[in-house]
Design a protein around this nucleic acid. Sequence first.
DNA 1: CCTATTTAGTTCTAATAAGAACCAAATATA
DNA 2: TATATTTGGTTCTTATTAGAACTAAATAGG
Lengths: 179, 179
Amino acid sequence: MSPPTEFPRVLSELVRTNQAFLNYAAIHAYTLELTLPQLDIILTLGHAFGMTFKRLGEKTLITKGTLTGIINRMEHKGLVQRIASKTDGRSQIVRLTTAGQTLFEQAVPEHLDYVNQLFKEYSLEDIATLESTLLRLRKAIFAAHGDGSEKPVDEIAGWCTQVKAVCKNYQEGDVVGPC
Amino acid sequence: MSPPTEFPRVLSELVRTNQAFLNYAAIHAYTLELTLPQLDIILTLGHAFGMTFKRLGEKTLITKGTLTGIINRMEHKGLVQRIASKTDGRSQIVRLTTAGQTLFEQAVPEHLDYVNQLFKEYSLEDIATLESTLLRLRKAIFAAHGDGSEKPVDEIAGWCTQVKAVCKNYQEGDVVGPC
DNA sequence: CCTATTTAGTTCTAATAAGAACCAAATATA
DNA sequence: TATATTTGGTTCTTATTAGAACTAAATAGG
């Protein structure tokens, strides 16, 4: 089979659709005077009585360097608080404040209604098809990485660094370790 | 029908799959000592003998404020150059330098092969299904915006601002213009 | 022809993104 | 028990993101 001659349109479509959705979701977040990552965090914390940074990063796919900054800004807005872990001196628990909880209770029905109306013309089968095709692609991506398992964010990030190093070294002709 | 009680898993899947793909693509960009947006610009410019910022922004979905900064950095790397437009005093043409063109010729086959191998287990029908389900969602998002047409980036951005203003005003009980 | 409006690209601001380096705490190993 | 390694969160750096405000140029309208 001859080498491919153009960028797969389906991947362009993936990126465009994702961007369109994020812009759409950001509009509603904006009415709550939140950014999208901040809203995502509120929706994640609202279902828990506090969460470690590690866990919160895993659930929201925000890397830890970035997460520290976002939590700082949300703490400054009075939406969350940090509580030292009783069981791990390194850890802190992030919890919604009373104001954060109030915002969560307001935001949830609004946001769910807002995003679910995208699917008002969809059947359950339509939704299942879209979801399974996306999952299949995500699995293909992980398979192409050479590791079929899905990893927590920082492991993925750490692993990306390793793969990048291997790619770069391989390009330069160096001996590489086991892949 | 009762109000939805959870965030649609399919949208979480969209965001995760997109992020997985961007991480995957970034790995290859990294071997070329480029960021993903920079690689995207090189792949876009490589097929043209120069392009205005406006056109480049439309094709890459990068807003113009951001694009100026990226082109500055690429110019500093010696990959692109700016040429004043002969027909519009406001415009500049962005064109790959010789080094940029060389990198383009190296990058294209590598990158196309790299991303196309995600689909080695896919049939043409599989790809078409994924693409059409994504396109349908994207159209649903635009429909939910209240405007079924797809717009160039800045128009979309400008339009988002208008919608945000209307949403915000509506929340506050003000009289709003026609929607 | 003159005035008003729109547009192309730049500058600026705030937020986010990714990831390396760091330090202290936890865990693993000998 | 002591040493080595890993981990949680922070700080720092670089890049990107979005969008408002700006200036000069182009276009529209009277």
